[in-house]
Design a protein around this nucleic acid. Structure first.
Length: 500
RNA sequence: GCUCCCAUCGUCUAGCGGUCUAGGACGUCGCCCUCUCACGGCGAAAACAGGGGUUCGAGUCCCCUUGGGAGCGCCA
């Protein structure tokens, strides 16, 4: 899936200014994705939480791309993440920090730890480590590095082997993480092994890079997925060894799929770009995401301002939430109804390159279609849950001459119905003003004289004009379509009936 | 296997020892509105995983069981 080609082609942004000097009590959060794929829904929520917390406290949210894995990081993924954040409406402060550009600093910190005795060289080979894990697995022992080089004389180093640098972690006592979400979490140090800080090729591990960068970027609050909870313990050890103050932690439970299993690509772990193409509004996704794992009493709908004002780490739940498309759709329907008509036309148009071709539409609307869309939007948006539904429900506005009837509409237009329309035709032809109220009056009186219910006339008419059995209010439809177009569509069906 | 986390309607959740015959939202099902479908309104079914404690009193605190989840890389 990943394009491993030439990541070196990318010029990393300079990040020498990462050493910031903010006011000491300013809140600084960060979103730190690794660019190995799109911005998925879990990452989006993490970004949102970081964004909200920073905004809530008048602080800053930084963006750091963790691209130290040169094999798996791609420019395409960086682009997708940036685009995703942009679409979601989450902005960050300052320049993007590319972690890879900071390797020299990471190495420097590792060396300093080595010099101070807080770390040591380990010459164990990959194979050796694998055997260690294998035998531990076999004997039912914990899978940990056994510290074989921890106190060994470096003179014993095998020739020609490039060592890694490992943290000389405390082996007794406990490591405590005070977490705003998880509470006080305690590990016995004997259960934690000596992690690798610097690989044998001189590049930093994630564990080191994160600590150094968060420190240098003056991050005060780390808000991330709880798959990092045990990492927090190990990172605490690094902070302690360095004599640095650790940030405030908040480990948010992961989002699960509808079946309760971890959200994977198989079920719903789509990139936010997919949600955009599925016709969801960023505001709806934000609102859905903020309520997934977080609550504020019984409030369900939050404007951005309300979200920012109410957001609080302490109200984040500790159990994983399942992703529920139905609720997202419901919220999306709400925001659709609330959105200005012109904005919706605009959003539809930006989706046209994606949705248009399959629907016989170009990549933009004609002025006439745009006019009709806007005039009908009030009635249309009330009936749609997504922009796709909205576009599909507007079929009749851009359909050309011979309207394609869907199955229900075709069934509705039986002989009797066509006959009814045939006798209605001359009445409509002489309607003085082609406006909804006049049309309604004319059709109601026609139904009355014919001794039928309005629905008996309205439904066939709707089918003839829109090709569907559902639509916005019929008389509005007629007004927007105009006299010429309406009568043409009506005649087409009446004649069609005569042929049959 | 080891470490850690979690557990209220199908789903998201409110609840932070008594106000809980457990509230809201989505979804589901009725009814109303009505030219269709929606929207809107009204109503219904629907949960404290199980077992022990603590307490005058437990959905709320503790323990165990069960069931989920995360982590245990020279990935991030």
């Amino acid at each position: 899936m990943l394009n491993d080609g030439a990541p070196a082609a990318r010029a990393p942004l300079p990040s020498s200014s990462a050493q910031t000097n903010p006011m000491s009590d300013q809140v600084v959060t960060r979103f730190a994705p690794s660019p190995t794929g799109f911005l998925h829904i879990g990452g989006a929520r993490t970004a949102l939480f970081n964004w909200l917390y920073a905004r809530r406290h008048g602080g800053r949210m930084l963006l750091r791309i963790e691209d130290t894995d040169r094999e798996r990081s791609t420019d395409a993924a960086i682009g997708a993440i940036l685009d995703g954040l942009d679409w979601l409406g989450l902005d960050w402060d300052g320049d993007v920090v590319y972690q890879f550009s900071r390797v020299a600093r990471h190495r420097e910190v590792a060396e300093s730890l080595l010099a101070s005795g807080g770390a040591y060289h380990c010459y164990a080979s990959q194979q050796e480590l694998e055997e260690m894990r294998e035998s531990a697995r076999r004997d039912g022992r914990p899978l940990r590095y056994d510290g074989r080089w921890r106190d060994r004389d470096p003179a014993d180093a095998p020739p020609g082997v490039k060592p890694v640098i490992r943290l000389r972690a405390q082996s007794e006592g406990e490591t405590v993480v005070q977490d705003h979400v998880q509470g006080r979490v305690v590990w016995q140090n004997k259960d934690l092994d000596d992690l690798v800080l610097l690989r044998s090729d001189g590049t930093p591990t994630y564990m080191l890079a994160v600590v150094v960068d968060d420190h240098d970027m003056a991050v005060t609050h780390v808000i991330r997925g709880d798959d990092h909870l045990t990492n927090a313990a190990r990172q605490s050890q690094i902070y302690r060894a360095l004599g640095w103050r650790a940030p405030e932690w908040s480990h948010v439970p992961l989002i699960h799929g509808a079946d309760g299993a971890k959200l994977s690509k198989r079920h719903g772990a789509l990139g936010v770009d997919a949600y955009r193409d599925l016709g969801y509004l960023p505001a709806a996704l934000r609102n859905y995401l903020v309520r997934l794992g977080w609550s504020h009493g019984n409030q369900e709908i939050f404007s951005d301002e309300e979200m920012v004002a109410a957001f609080d780490l302490g109200q984040i739940g500790r159990s994983p939430a399942r992703f529920d498309v139905a609720k997202l759709e419901s919220l999306n329907g709400h925001y659709l109804r609330q959105a200005p008509d012109a904005e919706l036309v605009c959003r539809l148009e930006t989706l046209l390159p994606v949705l248009g071709p399959a629907r016989g539409l170009g990549t933009s609307f004609t002025p006439e279609v745009r006019r009709r869309l806007e005039a009908s939007m009030a009635g249309l948006k009330e009936r749609a849950k997504t922009l796709i539904e909205l576009l599909d429900s507007a079929y009749y506005l851009h359909a050309s001459a011979p309207l394609t009837l869907d199955a229900k509409a075709a069934a509705l237009l039986d002989e009797a119905a066509r006959a009814r329309l045939a006798s209605l035709l001359p009445i409509l032809e002489v309607v003085a003003e082609w406006r909804a109220p006049e049309l309604e009056a004319a059709i109601r009186s026609f139904a009355e004289t014919a001794g039928t219910k309005l629905g008996q006339v309205a439904q066939p008419l709707r089918a003839a004009l829109t090709g569907r059995t559902t639509s916005p209010p019929l008389f509005d439809v007629m007004e927007v379509l105009g006299r010429t177009e309406s009568l043409a569509r009506l005649r087409a069906q009446v004649e069609n009936g005569a042929d049959a």
